[in-house]
């Protein structure tokens, strides 16, 4: 049994410490918004925040994040998160949508650190997130729009 702090609540999960956080979230906490895409930190579909930092949950042993604040797409609630989700919806960013939880978590983390990102900043922060539908132009536009909303 491991105790995790997920989206502000304490949860006891019957998992071994070496299980990747991704699968503890998906199969044990039943938070399926965080996606499996590659299992080797190549695609970013599994991005969540640990103590506010974006991390790839597919290669993060769940034991290493016990006691830390884990935030998933289901629980992300900051002002930046709201602005990002609004922009994503207004600009119709998602196509298949499978990668978008990870895209949004990366975008929120970017804006929380850098409220006025340039295109180069966006390339760097979002370069680890693959979108097979290539929604990239709208992802970029939505990040700029969210930044504008945040003032």
């Amino acid at each position: 049994m491991l105790t995790l702090n997920i989206n502000g609540a304490s949860k006891e999960l019957d998992v071994t410490p070496d299980m990747p956080l991704l699968w503890a979230l998906r199969d044990h906490a039943l938070l399926t918004g965080t996606k499996y895409g590659c299992g080797m930190a190549q695609c970013g579909a599994c991005t969540v925040h640990v103590d506010g930092q974006p991390i790839r949950s597919c290669i993060t042993p769940v034991g290493s994040v016990a006691g830390k604040a884990i935030t998933t797409i289901e629980g992300v609630q900051s002002t930046a998160a709201k602005a990002v989700q609004d922009a994503w919806q207004t600009l119709n960013v998602p196509q298949c949508g499978y990668c978008q939880s990870g895209q949004i978590m990366s975008a929120v983390a970017l804006l929380e650190k850098n409220p006025k990102p340039t295109d180069v900043d966006i390339d760097q922060a979002m370069g680890g997130n693959i979108c097979r539908c290539a929604t990239y132009p709208r992802i970029r536009a939505a990040i700029h729009q969210a930044a504008k909303t945040l003032g």
């Binding site: 399926t32 996606k35 499996y36 994503w88 207004t90 949508g97 978008q100 949004i104």
Partner: peptide
């Protein structure tokens, strides 16, 4: 028009086969 799936695909609630329990 906003896509009918825009909300579910931005808040983690969209259900794919992978998510079924």
């Amino acid at each position: 028009l906003r896509r009918v799936d825009a909300l579910a695909k931005t808040n983690g609630t969209a259900q794919y086969t992978q998510d079924l329990h």
